[in-house]
Amino acid sequence: MKEERKKMSKQEQLQNLLGKLRAALPELREIIVASADGLPIAQLGESEIATRLAAMAATAHGLGKRIATTTHLGDLMEIVVRGNQAYFIAYAIGDKGILGLTTPAGSNLGLVRLEAQEYAKRLAELL
């Protein structure tokens, strides 16, 4: 079992982690991992929007960090874009990248937050 784990490529391990996150929060639609400079690293969901979402997640996160420093908010914890039908939420994966999610308006945001932060930590170890 351990041997098998080792043989999994980084991409497979990433995909595997995203699959577990989706299993923990089945209502999630898009799940993407992007580098801080906006390149897609891994994704679950519609592939056409994933590439664009990766760039936008990096933009939102880069700008969010500057808003946080300019207005003395402390360290940036999350970015939330709230539409009337769904949310886009992004978390830093250490300084290695960004985890971006979309989830419907009725979602339990507290739970999404907890799980997403936990998975961001695991992703940071992997990247």
């Binding site: 400079d37 906006g38 996160h61 300084d95």
Partner: peptide, 21 residues
């Protein structure tokens, strides 16, 4: 200055690149 450079993961001839503005 508001600058939003992030570490570049591709070889672009410099360490960082602007992601927002």
């Amino acid at each position: 200055v508001v600058d939003t450079d992030a570490a570049a993961t591709e070889a672009i001839g410099k360490a960082t690149t602007t992601v927002a503005l």
